[in-house]
Amino acid sequence: MNIFRLLGDISHLLAIIILLRKIWMSRSCAGISGKSQLLFGLVYTTRYLDLITSYISLYNSVMKVVFLAASYATIYLMYVKFKATYDHNHDTFRIEFLVVPAVALALLINHDFQVVEILWTFSIYLESVAILPQLFMVSKTGEAESITSHYLFALGVYRGLYLLNWIYRFWAEDHYDLIAIVAGVVQTVLYCDFFYLYITKVLRGKKLQLPA
């Protein structure tokens, strides 16, 4: 494992913790897209099925369990415990527009036509666009709480760091996975507009507010 990969994983972990903590401490999931969280739950579930079938390392297994548990916990808090605070009027992105193409693409473009491999590929494609309901919600309300912005920043940076990891691995190990790389580029590009707003506004102490 190289430094970019490690920092990417830490950033990913940090994002998940920031979100869970925000919901728990404020007893509210206002401003958070339940649909994006459902999609992430689906992403982790379909990608980490190999947790049962193959052992890679303790680090790998622990991280997978943590991501799965945190994702399910977030969904539970949003849809059960703090359901009353869930802002579903603003969470109107049609997720079938993301899930159906991700399934189709996974069936068409994959490394191996086998169930576990297709589910992995689906999870990679779906992850790249899973944040769209959340970004759509922010654009609809025109603003985001600072803590939500920190969450989005950490989540966006994670795949960006993976891109550096893949560049490094291509150079150092001659290893590359085009499916992950292309999806990772798409995923990171989707955050660019947000990164700009985060750096120019949130880091200067201002609330993230979109121009009217």
Partner: peptide
């Protein structure tokens, strides 16, 4: 010969 698929990454 393609590289074996690396599933170590998360």
């Amino acid at each position: 010969q393609p590289e074996p698929i690396d599933k170590d990454e998360l």
